[in-house]
Simulated scan of single mutants.
Amino acid sequence: MSFTESYTCDICGDKKGTSGQWFLAWQDCLPLVRTEGTQPLIKLTRWEQEHAHEESVIHLCGNRCAGTLMERWMTEQHEQPTASCA
């Protein structure tokens, strides 16, 4: 028995095909060095099927959607400069 996996861009909703420059992203926490606490962090990497299954991964269909994610995240961080990880 076989099955087909499908992925959808979390920004624009496009379906992943066999071509394209897909990326993966995660939101994470960066420990502060001089004080206690954490700071939100975003990680971005090229598509890797093994990591695409992770629950917290953000699927991105290309440069434009990766840029949109970064812009949204940066705006959120600017609006909440003292935000820490939950």
Rank of each mutant, 00 (worst) to 15 (best):
M74S: 09
C29R: 00
T82K: 12
L32R: 15
A86V: 05
H51N: 13
T68Q: 03
Q49L: 07
T35D: 12
C65V: 00
G13L: 10
L44W: 09
G17I: 06
E79G: 00
T35Y: 09
T45N: 12
L41V: 04
S2H: 15
G17M: 04
W47S: 11
L69R: 07
L32C: 06
H59T: 12
Q39D: 02
R46M: 11
L69D: 05
I58C: 00
E36W: 07
C9R: 02
M1Y: 15
W22S: 00
N63M: 00
H51E: 11
Q80G: 05
I58H: 09
C85K: 01
M1S: 14
C61D: 04
V33K: 13
S84E: 03
G67L: 01
W47D: 15
C85P: 10
R34H: 13
P81T: 01
T45W: 10
P81L: 06
R64F: 02
L30P: 09
M70G: 01
A25T: 05
D28A: 15
C65H: 04
T82F: 01
C9A: 03
T45E: 14
T35A: 11
T75I: 03
H53S: 13
T45M: 14
L60I: 06
C12Y: 12
C61V: 03
F3M: 12
R64E: 13
P31S: 15
E76M: 04
H53G: 13
E54I: 08
E5G: 13
G20W: 06
I11E: 14
